[in-house]
Design a protein around this nucleic acid. Structure first.
Length: 375
RNA sequence: GGAUGGUUUCCCGAGUGGCCAAAGGGGACAGACUGUAAAUCUGCUGGCAACGCCUUCGGUGGUUCGAAUCCACCACCAUCCA
């Protein structure tokens, strides 16, 4: 159950009560696609850096190790030693990212496994069954994420199909939650808004799914090639048509600046691979912008990544040491960067919540953005 | 002391008369990445007043229209024989 605690402008401050605990929003979910945050980060680490929700992926866990394996081992929470909320993405993003390895039909999507080429069929029912086997806290509806520059005719067709798939997802989820041996009988379902950058398609689709009484609503298909301005414009026109007494999730976004802008427009759930992937690539976030620790200028820099940062990395290590580890290809270098970045994001969300609580979000956002731009 | 092989751009290493500022790899330097096919990928790596010029393939001298490539001597390295 979602509780809208406070609004500051359009910015929402809320709580999502789940069987795995309460999620304070706005929240950034930490992405661990294959039941692990890449960069040698454990569930124990997540507890120490303020992670509220871990995100894993239906397609990837179905391919390896297999959702039936995870189910037999007691579900995803037990499998990865994480007892707090988990959101599973439905496989819809893989329809986009693995476009060369799949074929879309009305009944669902035929993939060729990116691991061994094996044929995999995934439709709405299959995605729900896999997510039910995983026992995640929140399941995402199975959608198609069309590229931002897809032509209008195709987008309309795709969006209509995604809505039909959503109806099938809802029906199947209800059935699965009612079975006697379901891993998590209280699994929630979030629907997904699509429509590329066509405002009218987005709005019309948002109105349709808003009536379906889902546990939450996501905006998908953004940050897939369009400009930031286009993304904000789509949020401006779409979010008002999604129920504000339900969680609003902007999928796959984004940079700290993207998040600040989207919170202002009423979004309160986020996820993105940036902090983990950039961390592995030596790019770390600070309140004054991003640093590339591979750069020669950090060779003798004995400061932490960010002065005053309370993350496990900044408490003990210098930029020069981390740069050395990265250059030497030591796994610890990546790990320290990922831990810092996830802490940075989690902490940013905490500050965002405090700012909304205090009714000073506008001012807070302005100050943060100026910092990121080095002002 | 003798024999043989070798010395190439930051490193390893290809190149044995022109298509060579010189393959390939490494390293260095820089960039990209937004519901993760990503510990990945891309660019760049002699100098400059730069579609051209200059310097560079151990050193010096020579042959040739033309040399990293051929010849002579010298230096150094490696292995083997005394």
């Amino acid at each position: 159950m979602y509780r809208l605690l406070k609004q500051d402008g359009n910015a929402k401050r809320g709580e999502l009560h789940t069987v795995h605990g309460v999620i304070q929003t706005p929240v950034f979910m930490n992405v661990g696609t294959v039941a692990a945050i890449k960069g040698a980060v454990s569930a124990e680490d997540l507890r120490q850096i303020g992670t509220q929700v871990e995100l894993s992926n239906t397609y990837h866990l179905h391919v390896r190790p297999g959702d039936h394996i995870i189910r037999q081992l007691g579900g995803l929470h037990k499998f990865m030693d994480w007892d707090r909320p988990i959101l599973t993405d439905s496989g819809g993003f893989q329809v986009f990212s693995l476009a060369k390895l799949r074929k879309i039909q009305e009944e669902g999507v035929y993939f060729n496994s990116h691991i061994d080429g094996k044929k995999i069929f995934m439709g709405p029912e299959e995605s729900m069954r896999i997510q039910s086997n995983l026992g995640s806290t929140i399941a995402m509806a199975f959608d198609e994420c069309p590229p931002s520059k897809a032509e209008r005719g195709y987008v309309q067709k795709s969006v209509d199909r995604t809505v039909r798939w959503l109806e099938r997802c809802k029906k199947e989820m209800k059935r699965l939650n009612g079975l006697p041996d379901t891993v998590n009988p209280h699994q929630m379902l979030f629907g997904i808004n699509q429509g590329a950058i066509y405002e009218d398609i987005r709005i019309e689709q948002a109105k349709r799914i808003a009536q379906m009484d889902l546990d939450g609503y996501a905006v998908g298909g953004l940050a897939v090639g369009e400009s930031h301005e286009e993304m904000y414009r789509i949020l401006d026109v779409t979010v008002p048509h999604l129920p504000k007494e339900k969680p609003t999730y902007l999928m796959g976004v984004g940079t700290p600046a993207n998040i600040l802008e989207a919170v202002e427009r009423g979004v309160d759930f986020f996820d993105c691979v940036y902090p983990s992937r950039n961390g592995r690539h030596g790019h770390v976030y600070t309140s004054h912008g991003k640093l590339n620790l591979f750069n020669a200028k950090y060779e003798l820099d004995d400061r932490p990544i960010e002065e005053g940062c309370q993350c496990p990395t900044c408490r003990r290590h210098t930029r020069a040491y981390i740069r050395h580890l990265l250059k030497a290809k030591e796994m610890l270098g990546m790990r320290l960067c990922v831990l810092h970045n996830l802490y940075f994001y989690n902490h940013l969300m905490e500050e965002i919540r405090d700012a909304i609580d205090a009714g000073r979000y506008q001012e807070f956002k302005k100050r943060k953005l100026e910092g990121f731009e080095g002002k």
